[in-house]
Design a binder for these strands. Structure first.
Lengths: 138, 138
DNA sequence: TAGCAATTTGATATTAAGTATCAATAAGGA
DNA sequence: TCCTTATTGATACTTAATATCAAATTGCTA
């Protein structure tokens, strides 16, 4: 997922309707970049009901357009997924920016662990918390 | 953390008072075993206010006695930590049971990733979702 | 072991995230 | 254009959690 239109295409491809509301939410996400909360989107689109924002965000999640990020304290952020693929997160605890990464090594080790423990693995999440280069003091 | 008294010792060692409420909550956790929600504890201890249950659970978390587990859908469970140490989770999506594991390999790979990305790593969480041996069909 | 300061608690209100309901509206294929 | 179906808004509700503050409890300490 790179361009705003990708979201709209994804909607159509999955049999969802292309509505003004969904376009508006999509635009806000792409204009804003960076992590966002439901509140932020809701504030940016006063004409659209809260419930619809939630619905749209959930739909975009399901389509892999955005990903949900659990902050350390339990707060929730969303962010455009740079890839719809499986990935992990660097989460900057200073500014909240989330960067994605892929690591075949880790995934392999995770699979080994699961096998060793007789655990039928369906999915996994890996979140790294710390200070990103975005906020590094140097 | 293995025995109920460990919690009480941890409280004292960290300068917290040993109260009837905290003992009661602790007992519920050890009697129940397995994952629990605030509701469950609250139901088991009708005489104790909800806010206090939350406070106590948070305190126990801070002391490493219990750990918080984010379920896939966003629900939250808590469970006695079998170790206060750094660890990761197998989360059975059928029954909710959480099993801990440690994997130096994964931790190493995680550290490498962080270094490579110029990310000052403070902590990380790894949660594996799937069907545990507890609920395996075989 | 009674007294007292500081911690803890309960009741209550509040916040935040999210879901449920349902009538009204909009999308898009025929 | 019409019509079925998906979507939306308003509203109420749920769940998880925190804030406030007076009242109760701890555990020194004299």
């Amino acid at each position: 997922m790179r361009y705003p239109d990708d979201s709209l295409i994804a909607l159509k491809e999955n049999g969802y309707r292309l509505t003004a509301t969904r376009e508006a939410v999509n635009k806000v996400l792409y204009d804003h970049k960076g992590p966002f909360t439901i509140e932020m989107v809701s504030d940016a689109l006063p004409g659209i009901g809260r419930a619809t924002i939630f619905r749209t965000v959930r739909l975009f999640q399901d389509l892999g357009i955005i990903c949900r990020v659990n902050m350390e304290g339990g707060a929730v952020r969303y962010q455009l997924a740079s890839t719809g693929e499986h990935h992990h997160h660097f989460i900057c605890t200073v500014c909240g920016v989330v960067t994605e990464f892929i690591d075949a090594h880790i995934d392999q080790a995770v699979n080994r662990q699961a096998q060793g423990a007789d655990f039928e693995l369906n999915s996994h999440t890996i979140d790294l918390y710390g200070v990103g280069s975005c906020c590094s003091k140097k």
